[in-house]
C-alpha cells in the first residue's frame, strides 16, 4: 500500500531520462511552452469533467427532496435531504445488494479457481493443440450472450434454475472465463521459469510447483482479474433481467432492480429513488476502483495489450 502511495516519487526517480528530455525540449521552445501548458491543463480538465460531471449530477439529484426540487433542472435547487435513500431501502434494496454480492462473488471464486488452472496450463505446461484451445477461448469471448437467452431459459425452466443464484452465476462464469484465462495466462507467462525449475530440482511435483511457487507469485494478476470479473458480473443485465426479473427475496440483482423501480404515478420514473439507489451502488465500486487503480489498469490492459 505504502509503495503505491509514494509511487509518483518513485516514478520520477525511475525515469530521470524522460523528464530531462522534456525539460530540455521545453527550454528550447520556451515561447510555446506556456501555451502548451495551458492546452494541457484545459485538456486534463476536459477529461476530468467528462468523467466526473455526470456523477456529480447524480449525487446532487439523489439528495433533492420533494417533487418540485426533483423536477427542476437546476442542480442546486433545494431542499436537500436523505429521504430518497430511506425510500430505496424501503423497497428491499438491501436484498438486491445481497443477491448481487452473492452472485458476483460466486462467479469470481469459480472463475479464478478454474481459470487460473487453465491459464497456468496454457502458459507453462505441454499441451497438444494449444493454438486450437486458445482460438476456442477467443471464440467464446466473442460470443453474444443473447444467443443463450432462449435455450437457457427453456432449460432453466425445466430444471428449476429460473430465479436462482445458480441460474445466473453459471452463465456468468462461462462468459468471464475467456477474459480470466487471457489475463492469467499473460501473468503466469511473465513469471521466470527458473523459479519453477528450481522447485523441480528440489523434488517438487509439477502440481506442487504450481501451487507453492507460481500461484503466490501470480497473486497480483489474480487479484486484478478477480476485480474485473466481479465488476463484470455485478453489472450484467441481459441474463439477469431474463432469468430473474422479479422478487428481490430470491435472486433479482441490483441492475434489474434499478431498471425496474416504479413510482406512484405510472409512466413516471421516481427520479429521486433511482438516483439514490444508483449512488448507493456506485460509491463502493468507485472506492474499490480508486484503491486498486493500478492493478485494475494493469489487468485491463494486459488482457489484450501488453506483450
Amino acid at each position: 500500500m505504502s509503495a503505491e502511495q509514494n509511487s509518483p516519487e518513485q516514478r520520477r526517480r525511475k525515469h530521470p531520462g524522460s523528464l530531462a528530455w522534456l525539460r530540455s525540449e521545453q527550454g528550447a521552445v520556451r515561447t510555446r511552452s506556456v501555451g502548451r501548458t495551458v492546452v494541457k491543463v484545459v485538456g486534463l480538465a476536459a477529461v476530468l469533467f467528462w468523467c466526473l460531471f455526470p456523477f456529480f449530477w447524480l449525487i446532487m439529484t439523489s439528495l433533492k427532496q420533494g417533487d418540485r426540487a426533483l423536477n427542476s433542472p437546476d442542480i442546486f435547487q433545494g431542499p436537500f435531504g436523505l429521504g430518497n435513500y430511506e425510500n430505496v431501502f424501503d423497497q428491499n434494496f438491501h436484498l438486491n445488494l445481497r443477491n448481487s454480492l452473492a452472485i458476483a462473488g460466486m462467479t469470481t471464486i469459480i472463475c479464478i479457481i478454474i481459470g487460473s488452472l487453465a491459464g497456468y496450463a496454457l502458459a507453462r505446461l505441454p499441451l497438444k493443440r494449444k493454438i486450437l484451445l486458445l482460438s476456442g477461448v477467443l471464440a467464446v469471448s466473442l460470443f453474444p450472450p443473447v444467443a443463450l437467452v432462449p435455450p437457457l431459459y427453456e432449460v432453466w425452466r425445466t430444471v428449476g434454475l429460473l430465479n436462482t443464484w445458480e441460474g445466473l452465476y453459471l452463465p456468468y462464469t462461462a462468459f468471464t472465463l475467456p477474459l480470466t484465462i487471457f489475463i492469467l495466462t499473460t501473468f503466469y507467462a511473465s513469471i521466470p521459469k527458473d523459479l519453477e525449475d528450481a522447485a523441480r530440482v528440489d523434488g517438487a511435483t509439477p502440481f506442487q510447483a504450481f501451487y507453492k511457487v507460481v500461484f503466490p507469485l501470480a497473486a497480483p494478476g489474480v487479484f486484478a482479474a478477480a476485480i474485473i470479473i466481479f465488476v463484470t458480473a455485478w453489472n450484467e443485465f441481459l441474463l439477469a433481467n431474463t432469468f430473474a426479473p422479479r422478487n428481490p427475496e430470491v435472486a433479482q440483482t441490483v441492475p434489474v432492480a434499478i431498471a425496474a423501480f416504479t413510482g406512484q404515478v405510472e409512466f413516471q420514473r421516481p427520479i429521486g429513488t433511482i438516483t439514490a439507489a444508483c449512488v448507493v451502488v456506485v460509491i463502493p465500486m468507485i472506492i474499490v476502483a480508486l484503491v486498486f487503480q493500478r492493478r485494475i489498469v494493469a489487468g485491463l490492459t494486459s488482457g489484450g495489450l501488453k506483450g
Binding site: C51, L52, F55, V231, W234, N235, F237, V254, P255, V256, I258, A259, C278, V281, V282, M285, I286, V288, A289, L290, Q293, I296, V297
Partner: peptide
C-alpha cells in the same frame, strides 16, 4: 475508471 466501473444500467 469511474465511467468504466459504473454499471451500464445506472
Amino acid at each position: 475508471l469511474i465511467p468504466w466501473v459504473i454499471p451500464t444500467v445506472i
